[in-house]
Design a protein around this nucleic acid. Structure first.
Length: 609
DNA sequence: CCCCCCCC
């Protein structure tokens, strides 16, 4: 193998010229740390044997080749793909930066072991020497300098005489300079969303942009939202300039960039229909479905799988917003021979057609844990592609048609715990539930306890509710034979009895007050709410029902949420299910399994499997 | 200037 470097390549490239697949030697690298993992960048010192270039940026997808040592000092590589771009530099105006997109290693650094040739740093003289026709062309397409008195709307930094523009890599954008134009593809676009809070109200949409060097999120508020929403289309390429850059809050995004852009009244967006092949489309970093089980809840991942089955659209009411939600759960499977439930929301759920077993590729889905199983759920910021035309999707299709369709997959979304009961894992004693900070997050936590009913409060346990189906609002007795429902805003001649029962539950570790609504209260009391209401006039019989309910033991499914009541945090617990303990044999079998798991004895499998 | 992303 020849180790001949492409002498003179660096001066041509830095002058704006093109050199096909130059061979260079790596003589050093420097890590430019980002603020989060995944946003680190490496700057390489490269030599063509004649000149050194200390401003060769490595595309982030090649970072692992530096960290693995593959691109260590003295390594000789062929640069198979690169771009250059002008970046502002405070001392020297602009400088051309080379971004290395792909390399082929020709000889490892250890193998070579020394510096080839006698490369010298590039000087302005050297650059001038290399100026050719290309450089002359590029000099003519430099953007006009913004001036204070120029009308902003009719002179565009994007309209240059030759029709071509110098564009800047997304990876070079920062709040410290605003004279840039990016050429970027929209990979995701949010719907318009409105907000209203203490600081005001408005509307916005946001989009994700990528080019060969990186990605960034951009948001358009209010007027800009109206102005650009219809124009911006997913998968199209645009020339974008004059946005404001600010530090991205990593809490709200998984875009790998320390900054994000905000559109301003000055912002220009021009569709770009030419030379867009070099601008990448959305890239995925798929996690095999089998690996999802080992990841933490709330982690954001990309997944790809074939839809093996899909459920019906379900309608539910959000506990937080009281808004109606539509969701559809589909089972996707992949070559790891594992399946996971993927949850679609809204119109995506309604429009979904699963009967043809489409391949689904989803970017930025969130891992959820429910009942010991893991599932993935689309978020507003997720991207779902159905039957994408990619090699990976075709391979998956081939696997599914030949093997996957007929084979049984392990389902990591299946719940552990008592088989077929709908009960889930997360067994806890009452004390553990109190000590494990359950319900301290945004969402309630669910747990399961075996506990005994100690006290059942009869006071205020029964109330007269609106007779309308689905309205359980307490009615006001008008004392004229009519009952008023404030929620329905009307009076009825009748009502129905509803239960809202406070019970103290106890186990060996402690006790906990909990609330039972209609269904669970009827189970604990052993009577229907209506029948209990009919007994109301007979206090002895009425109280007897409550006495009989005490000292019975159940498997309780409990929902826990920490609430602040009179400046004190207290755990509010609701009974969502109360089940018979079953036979002692069944109960003991579960306990024995738990003990084995705790002690690490044998190949114990979750109870019920 | 948003930052909600849902349910069992």
């Amino acid at each position: 193998m020849s180790l001949k470097l492409t002498e003179g390549a660096i001066s041509v490239i830095l002058a704006g010229g093109n050199v096909d697949e130059p061979v260079v030697q790596i003589l050093g690298h420097k890590k430019l740390a980002g603020t989060n993992t995944g946003s680190d960048r490496f700057r390489l010192l490269i030599s063509d044997g004649r000149h050194l270039n200390g401003f060769a940026m490595l595309a982030t997808q090649l970072n692992n080749q530096v960290t693995s040592g593959e691109l260590c000092d003295f390594t000789v590589v062929q640069i198979t793909r690169y771009i250059t771009s002008m970046v502002a530099n405070s001392e020297k105006g602009e400088r051309r930066v080379m971004v290395i997109l792909d390399v082929k290693i020709l000889a490892s650094g250890n193998e070579v072991g020394f510096k080839l040739g006698n490369p010298k740093p590039m000087t302005d003289g050297a650059e001038a020497e290399a100026v050719g026709p290309q450089q002359a062309v590029h000099n003519k397409t430099v953007q006009p300098k913004p001036t204070a008195n120029r009308p902003a709307s009719n002179v565009s930094v994007l309209s240059s005489p030759g029709g071509s523009v110098n564009t800047h890599p997304i990876s070079s954008l920062s709040p410290y300079q605003n004279k840039w134009v990016i050429k970027a593809r929209v990979t995701a676009k949010s719907p318009v969303r409105t907000w209203a809070n203490a600081r005001g109200e408005g509307k916005l949409f946001s989009m994700d942009l990528i080019d060969e060097t990186g990605e960034i999120r951009a948001t358009a508020f209010k007027e800009q939202c109206d102005k650009f929403f219809d124009m911006i289309e997913v998968n199209k390429v645009y020339l974008i300039s004059r946005c404001v850059l600010k530090t991205a809050n990593k809490k709200f995004t998984n875009i790998k960039n320390d900054y994000e852009m905000t559109f301003t009244s000055d912002t220009q967006v021009i569709p770009c229909n030419e030379d867009t092949a070099g601008i990448p489309t959305l890239t995925f970093d798929f996690t095999p479905i089998s690996a999802l089980a080992g990841l933490e809840s709330n982690a954001i991942v990309d997944v790809i799988g074939v839809c093996k089955s899909s459920g019906e659209v379900q309608t539910l009411i959000s506990r937080n917003t009281n808004k109606e939600l539509k969701k559809r759960e589909v089972m996707i499977v992949d070559q790891s021979n594992t399946g996971v439930t993927l949850t679609l929301w809204g119109t995506q759920a309604e429009d979904f057609e699963g009967s043809t077993n489409p391949v689904l590729a989803a970017k930025n889905v969130r891992i959820n844990e429910y009942g010991g199983g893991k599932s993935v759920s689309l978020l507003q910021s997720s991207v779902l592609q159905i039957n994408p035309d990619t090699p990976q999707a075709h391979k998956l299709r081939g696997w599914f048609d030949s093997v996957g369709a007929t084979q049984e997959q392990e389902n990591i979304s299946g719940r552990t715990g008592v088989a077929g009961s709908g009960f889930s894992a997360n067994w806890m004693t009452l004390k553990e539930a109190q000590e494990n900070q359950l319900g301290c997050g945004d969402k309630p936590d669910y747990f399961t306890s075996v506990a005994t009913v100690l006290i059942v409060r009869s006071e205020n346990s029964l109330y007269k509710a609106c007779p309308t189906e689905d309205c359980n609002k307490k009615v006001i007795d008008q004392n004229n034979g009519m009952y008023r429902c404030e929620k329905c805003n009307r009076e009825y001649p009748n009502f129905k009895y509803r239960l809202l029962l406070s019970v103290s539950l106890g186990d060996f570790s402690g006790n906990q007050w909990a609330t039972c609504f209609q269904d669970t209260a009827e189970i604990l009391l052993g009577v229907k709410a209506q029948d209990l209401g009919d007994l109301f006039h007979d206090d002895r019989q009425f109280q007897e029902v409550f006495h009989k309910a005490a000292f019975k033991t159940y498997i309780f499914r409990l929902r826990a949420k920490m609430e602040n009541y009179q400046e004190e945090n207290r755990l509010k617990v609701t009974v969502t299910e109360a089940r018979s303990l079953g036979t002692m044999q069944e109960h003991n079998a579960r306990l024995i399994t738990e003990i084995k798991e705790m002690a690490g004895i044998g190949n114990s499998v979750p109870y019920g499997n």
